[in-house]
């Protein structure tokens, strides 16, 4: 029978970690861009648009990521799009991320004092000018720590994509466990790898928060 050394297990998990990282980056970047659009709709002075964005956010925050993944995975073929675990995972995580980031950023935009809106309006700025030149630059400062903090949720969210067969750290762990029968060791290592990815992000979110509070 084939023997697996500790190094075999670890190296295979590390190889799979590439896909966790790549999927996290794609979801975070694409989700950030989409989140910006949702944010605009959420705070624009157009009530129907606001309601639509609110519904979008509620839907994603009120349902499990696993169900979102399944729906994307099984819905795309219905509209004729050939889907793979890769595309389904990337799309579902992007949508999930956009909803959460839009809600986080809405809080930051609302934290900008009302006088700033009024002052810029009195300078005859339109909504997009107000956002671009007055509100967003100020909201951005407050938004950095919680945004970095949320990236931890994105990395952890990628673990759920193992269930639709995307091979990242968790799926690799399951496959290695099935071959080695050492679940304690393998899942322990899997947990530590996630910790190694997430803890620096958590720490930097905390450090940024402290730095910004001191500056104010």
């Amino acid at each position: 029978m084939l023997e697996f050394s500790f190094w075999d297990i670890l190296s295979n998990l590390l190889l799979a970690a590439r896909w966790t990282v790549l999927l996290s980056v794609i979801a975070f970047v694409a989700g950030g861009l989409a989140g910006l659009l949702v944010l605009m709709a959420r705070v624009a002075p157009v009530p129907p648009l606001q309601r639509l964005a609110k519904l979008y956010i509620e839907l994603f925050q009120g349902t499990p990521l696993l169900m979102q993944l399944f729906i994307v995975f099984f819905a795309l073929p219905l509209v004729g799009i050939e889907t793979s675990p890769w595309t389904a995972a990337a799309l579902a995580l992007t949508l999930f991320t956009s909803a959460y980031l839009a809600e986080i950023w809405r809080g930051c935009v609302e934290a900008v004092p009302k006088g700033q809106w009024e002052a810029s309006a009195s300078l005859a700025m339109g909504f997009s000018e107000q956002m671009r030149w007055v509100v967003l630059p100020q909201a951005l400062r407050i938004a950095v720590p919680p945004t970095v903090g949320f990236s931890v949720q994105v990395v952890k969210g990628t673990a759920v994509t193992s269930i639709i067969g995307f091979v990242e750290i968790t799926k690799a762990g399951t496959m290695i466990t099935n071959a080695t029968f050492q679940p304690f060791l393998v899942y322990g290592l899997v947990g530590l790898l996630y910790f190694a990815l997430c803890y620096p992000l958590s720490l930097s979110a905390k450090a940024l928060e402290r730095k910004l509070n001191v500056a104010r």
Partner: peptide, 20 residues
């Protein structure tokens, strides 16, 4: 430790790992 690891992995560790 808990806040920086996925719930799914915690679940697997408890259900598959602890029996060892």
């Amino acid at each position: 430790l808990i806040r920086n690891t996925p719930f799914l992995v915690q679940l697997f560790f408890i259900f598959f790992g602890l029996p060892s």
